[in-house]
Design a binder for these strands. Sequence first.
DNA 1: TTGAAAGCGCTAACAT
DNA 2: ATGTTAGCGCTTTCAA
Lengths: 340, 340
Amino acid sequence: MKRITLKHIAQEFNVSIATVSKSLHDSHEISTATKNKIQAFARKHHYRPNNLARSLVNKRTKTLGVIIPNIMNNFFAKVFVGIEEVAASRGYNLISCISNESYSKEVKTMELLKNGTLDGFVLSLSEETQIRQSYDHLKHAIEQGVSIVLFDRVTEEVQCDKVTVDDLEGAHRATSHLIKSGCKRIAVISILDNISVGKLRVEGYKKALLESGREVEEKLIVRIGKEEDFETAMKFVLSDKNIDALLCLEESSAIRSLVLLKQMNYRIPEEMSMICFTNGELPKYVSPSITTISQHGKSVGEISARLLIDRIEEDKEEAPYQTKTIKTSLIERESTRPLS
Amino acid sequence: MKRITLKHIAQEFNVSIATVSKSLHDSHEISTATKNKIQAFARKHHYRPNNLARSLVNKRTKTLGVIIPNIMNNFFAKVFVGIEEVAASRGYNLISCISNESYSKEVKTMELLKNGTLDGFVLSLSEETQIRQSYDHLKHAIEQGVSIVLFDRVTEEVQCDKVTVDDLEGAHRATSHLIKSGCKRIAVISILDNISVGKLRVEGYKKALLESGREVEEKLIVRIGKEEDFETAMKFVLSDKNIDALLCLEESSAIRSLVLLKQMNYRIPEEMSMICFTNGELPKYVSPSITTISQHGKSVGEISARLLIDRIEEDKEEAPYQTKTIKTSLIERESTRPLS
DNA sequence: TTGAAAGCGCTAACAT
DNA sequence: ATGTTAGCGCTTTCAA
């Protein structure tokens, strides 16, 4: 059984398509009698308006594009959940893509989708995009009237609404916490040095050190690339026996460091304290559990979606762009010494 | 700057829309000269065909719907990645929704989307749907000619292509492994008793016990509901001091059991062995690390997407439905004794 | 209260 | 080689 259209219904009752359309929209122009019979018929036959046709006329699809670098990342998964909830509650669908940190995938997706299918985009820049600093795909989209909200990994280069995590403050908070708990030399472990948030976190770390009257030792800021062997790099770091704390800029390096430290029989947190970003399940259940900076991913998603939908719906395409910044929180666990 | 259409281009060169359309499709009917100038103009002005209009004519949207019960679940996240990859490689977009284990969300989503927006659905049933056993939304969709692929949590009630994990065999494999490693009394911890896969896993467990000449003790099959306090329930289970192995039917109960066992100073695996389903990061990095049954989520996703796209594209709407079953693998870790 | 007609942007069969 | 026409399914203005 094929899908039924206005035309079919019109034929059934020997009325015009317009009458059927109006009836189904419960227009006052139509008599209650005809409305009733048409509505009943439609319901009985599971009539569903064709959204493509409708969107073509209305120039609104009620669909948003979401581009996320990696869904296996706990933070992004949470953001996605937040976006999804808000979108659903406001009647929007989501077309979602995983850029997999690839610039070309990101570009292709945007190209593909800014063709009428979407009312706007929510996205976080892929690592490669941030390395290349090529943002033309975003700029073009905006020029063509597609609204965009950038979250987490953003850039000054593009004029649009943004939702960021206060990474600088987060790293500052983490570093200060380590200092207060008595740590003397704190190393930073970063595999995110290519992306905006990584850089901000390093800044926050430096700021905290300076504020407490310490010097920044560049060699304590360990940037590990994708090609390098993580374990080897870490062992080299740990050969500096005076390091007594690790600030890991994301989850995975924290977990891997922890495994290594345990192998090497470090006592945690006595000999080595640890804090990491991204408050997923892992840091919570690993032992010792790891003190984390929560970035409130779900809120980031919710706010991003709201920002985008508001801009689309209220036709405030000319309204000034805003950047909302979410504060982080520190969740104390076993990998740091209590602050007395 | 607004989006440019065939009409605009046609006006620009004083030709018909058809000529423009053909030029952009590089038709041999059009002279190279006109084709060139039209293509150049289109490129320069970033012309993108409106997909809505195109889909309306073609009756194909090249878009699939994906409904997943919970994206924070490692298995489903992997499935999603698999679907995404295949879909992208074959030129399909994904409209994705999280049912959040809710029947009504699942129904609403399907209602909303089987309106021309989609060529088909890939979905896994929500827990609530499996409890209510209401599958009319799926049946209607199929009647209306929307192709569906069900994965992981499936039902016999609906006639469509399916991709399942061999849960029975997985649980059988896990149980046999525990038996071979010397475990005497194996308890099953299930918070999935409402869903198909949960039941299959229990069956696999029973089968393995019987095969090894043991009896099935129903009280060793612990079904913990959402409302019950997990910890209290587990403590009660563990009051039976003869239990020396836990088969956890998913990740979270395994992790929580592990925390509890460590608190209670169990030696793992000597006094208590453990195996759980879902091979995510958690079982790997927790200590002791947990032996798991991998369900190969990404493959499940890939196969599902392929099955769906094949059916859509090859117009084999009448082809017999298939069910593909993915074998699990056992990944040995520290929570089980080696098989010597 | 109902209907005719135009149009959203595109495709495709059929002229010319 | 180019154009005309009809139509996908729907909304909306204007006319009856």
